[in-house]
Amino acid sequence: MRLLWGFLHVLCAVIAAVGVVFLGAGLKQLWRASRTQRWPTAPGKVISTDELMHLRKVPEGEGGGSRLLYEAQVHYEYTVGRVLIGSTRVRVTPSETSSEARSQATLARYPPGQELRVFYNPEDPTESVLEPGAHPLDFVRAGVGGTLVLVAGAAPLIARWFAARL
């Protein structure tokens, strides 16, 4: 029985460690995304748009094969001071998606020739976004990490509760 409890504690420690890594990375990503809302803006213009398709290999443990991902790429230019800067970044987080409709919706929001406000990092004006702030999918990594930490903390307690009932 001690061996089983030892295994359970080691397993929970590993799950908690993975959860802490995911939670830390997710919170860092959310912090970076929320920081963009305070960035100054500059006038900009959409130059062109493209929809890129990426074929990604799926690991064997997740079924293998490949997966098609779509990326809405918006080429825009903006001026900070007297410097003309070009970029393709819509959000802080990558814009790849498995949904072609979501990619098309992003492209539809930014037709070529459209004038817009570009949010840029005052410390590095070449870092910019069109859509500042955190978006719903940005919370996934932190949510998964938090869930793993909670499961790892609750599992030994639940196991002890069941063991006491036997």
Rank of each mutant, 00 (worst) to 15 (best):
V80L: 07
R67P: 05
R82K: 05
P59C: 11
V140Y: 00
T79M: 11
F162G: 04
E127Q: 15
K45R: 06
F139H: 03
G81E: 07
R67S: 14
L30Y: 10
R2S: 08
S34H: 11
G146P: 02
F139A: 04
A108F: 03
D138W: 00
N121A: 13
A72K: 05
G86F: 01
I47A: 11
P156A: 10
G143V: 02
R67M: 15
L166M: 10
G64A: 12
V18I: 12
G65N: 10
D138Y: 00
R67Y: 12
K28R: 15
L11P: 01
S87V: 02
L52C: 09
G61C: 04
A152R: 02
S66K: 11
R32S: 15
I47P: 01
G6H: 01
H75R: 14
W161H: 05
H75L: 15
V149M: 08
F162I: 06
R109Y: 08
V74M: 10
V14G: 04
P111F: 06
A33D: 01
R102I: 01
L4W: 01
A101D: 09
P94R: 13
W31Q: 15
V140H: 00
S103N: 05
G146Q: 06
E100I: 04
L116K: 05
V149C: 08
L116F: 10
V92F: 07
